[in-house]
Design a protein around this nucleic acid. Structure first.
Lengths: 349, 349
DNA sequence: GTTAGCACTCATTCAAGGTGAGTGCTAATC
DNA sequence: GATTAGCACTCACCTTGAATGAGTGCTAAC
């Protein structure tokens, strides 16, 4: 038995209804509400087949059917193929971001906010990160007698600041001159390159060896765990969906949202695709077994790439979410660069 | 009728029990569990008095009594007076923060994390902010042909970065030299001072007037809405308390946690006190009518002050929370400076 | 002033029964 | 051979009502 046209239409109807109501849908509903000229009995037979094919699940014997992850996959693929994504709220969003200057973090936060309120799900935005940012400038600022704050500015605009503690005394002037020579030495190199040159510099500037070693540590740390500022919007939204009326689930979800490192990993895992939809188990995250994640890569001016994503129940309004994510991705790309490419993302499964 | 010794002891017992169980406590419980040699009837009479005095509420006629905000106030004041705050986990926390260097944001985030897991409530940490940070360095980094990223480093170590868009073309070298002269001009002044000098600079460097105006805008924006990075830990914790089993309440709470600006306002409102406890309505936040907030001010090396706080149900374990907050405040103060003052906060109502 | 006793209130729990949406199967119909 | 009507059956869910028990206020006795 294979999937034919009629089965497909029935499946579509079931998914539509379930997305709307979150309630298992029965044969009668389909036969009546969705204008099929088929009796419920026929639908029942088809549903039974669809279940056997793995597209439907049945919570218990006398409940209606519920679409499986496989069904959503089919549905979404279909959606992506036809590619009919509306773009209504586009001007609304553009208005939101009006104004000439913006702090990077603000843009990210704002985007997450807007995206979540647009979709009524949870939105996550990762800032653009390049392969290897290059150092532009190193600044040391005195904090107390034996602690200094180091600020490393890179061309990614991503700035690291950390407090370094040393045993010797540090005065402001000394710090300033060290800043200058470090900048002269390391400007232009990547963080890893800079780390490699640290021992050399330590030798050359013995008096400040401890301080320089500290700076090396900071670079190393940052180079390893790139921990960008993750913006999240609308975590509370999830609580309004019946699938999270179970407190335990809600809590584990919120916990996940709180561990930003992990969240960044999850969202960032979109391979080479500019557009991905991961459904239920496809997310690879146990806590997200009945969530779906829609992500899109956006590109900032200097070619650096960031990711935006929406997390919702598997039963999410895919077509709206796809439209919103795609639109927001374009907007962000445009906002963060002025090199006007078409900005339209490839739609790939 | 006034508050006497016995009434006070009964009230104390009621609060203790309610903090533990979150269930309205009846006269019999007090008479039996709390070793009073009084019958339940007597307790009942006293409870009736206490209710009249405003220390107890009764959810409905045949339920036990629940402590009012006024009661908690009394309880906390008592606690603060005796000042017996344990400091068990102190070494555990210190271990957490071991290591020489730390990015400021990390410290803040980490502190919120630790504080929330220590108390099992929600923790909020505001980074140290001074009265008026002074500019140390201004860096321009090219992003695309007609957009630049400006990074402003201040002695607070707080760094502003924003993208500025201009119509003219900007090359890297030009940006670098502008950076240098701007730094020379503005280093040492506060943001507001710098803003005032912008028109002058625009005149002096006509060619870059547009760019400089943009930088002025950024400074202005930042000067006005100082929007520090607010660290939050353990929002999900709140869901485990019965007072938040109501989804609607949980959602409104989470929403509040998400609007960081507002949250920063709420937490930051601790006046001159280094230590404050706001109970229920005292928070002044409608959504927090049955929350309490314990905050403490900590001081970084350069005299800048930040705030840490714990948000929990009014029925929170005050004595533990007070201890944890006070300890974490000391730790942060110590960590962010090495000027070893005693670090012990004044305990004030 | 304290306590025992009693009538009363009211949230909570539990079982029983009814309801209705849904299914699978079979036999009749197109 | 596909479709449909009909029927028996299942099972979550709601309602109802009774039992339970924790709690109170009041009164009278100690």
């Amino acid at each position: 038995m294979a999937m034919d046209e009629r089965k497909f239409r029935i499946l579509q109807a079931i998914i539509d209804d379930y997305i709307l109501t979150a309630v298992p849908v029965g044969s009668r509903t389909i036969s009546k509400k969705y204008g099929m000229s088929l009796s419920s009995a026929t639908i029942r037979n088809e549903m039974s087949d669809l279940e056997e094919l793995g597209y439907l699940d049945q919570p218990h014997v006398s409940a209606g059917r519920v679409p499986s992850a496989k069904a959503y996959r089919l549905y979404v693929d279909q959606l992506l193929e036809t590619g009919r994504l509306s773009q209504e709220d586009e001007h609304l969003v553009r208005a939101h971001f009006a104004g000439r200057t913006r702090q990077m973090e603000d843009v990210i936060d704002h985007a997450a906010q807007v995206l979540s309120s647009l979709t009524r799900y949870t939105a996550v935005v990762l800032p653009p990160t390049g392969s290897q940012p290059r150092i532009r400038n190193i600044q040391l600022v005195s904090v107390s007698d034996n602690a200094a704050l180091v600020v490393i500015v890179t061309d990614a605009g991503v700035v690291k600041d950390a407090v370094i503690r040393v045993s010797e005394e540090l005065d402001s002037d000394a710090l300033y001159s060290i800043s200058r020579s470090l900048t002269a030495e390391l400007s232009g190199s990547t963080l890893t390159e800079a780390v490699e040159r640290i021992p050399l510099l330590m030798e050359r500037m013995r008096a400040q060896a401890e301080l320089i070693e500290g700076i090396g540590d900071v670079m190393q740390q940052r180079g390893e765990d790139i921990r960008p500022h993750v913006a999240i919007g609308g975590t509370a939204n999830m609580l309004s969906y019946p699938e999270y009326s179970d407190m335990e689930k809600a809590r584990s979800f919120l916990n996940l949202m709180e561990t930003r490192d992990r969240l960044a990993d999850i969202i960032g895992q979109n391979g080479e695709m500019s557009f991905t939809v991961r459904i239920g188990p496809e997310t690879g995250v146990p806590e997200m077994e009945d969530c779906s994640i829609v992500t899109m890569t956006y590109t900032a001016g200097n070619g650096q790439q960031g990711t935006i994503g929406v997390i919702g129940p598997t039963r999410m309004q895919y077509s709206e979410v796809l439209a919103a994510v795609s639109m927001m991705g374009r907007q962000l790309s445009q906002l963060l660069s002025t090199s006007e490419d078409d900005g339209v993302p490839r739609l790939e499964g």
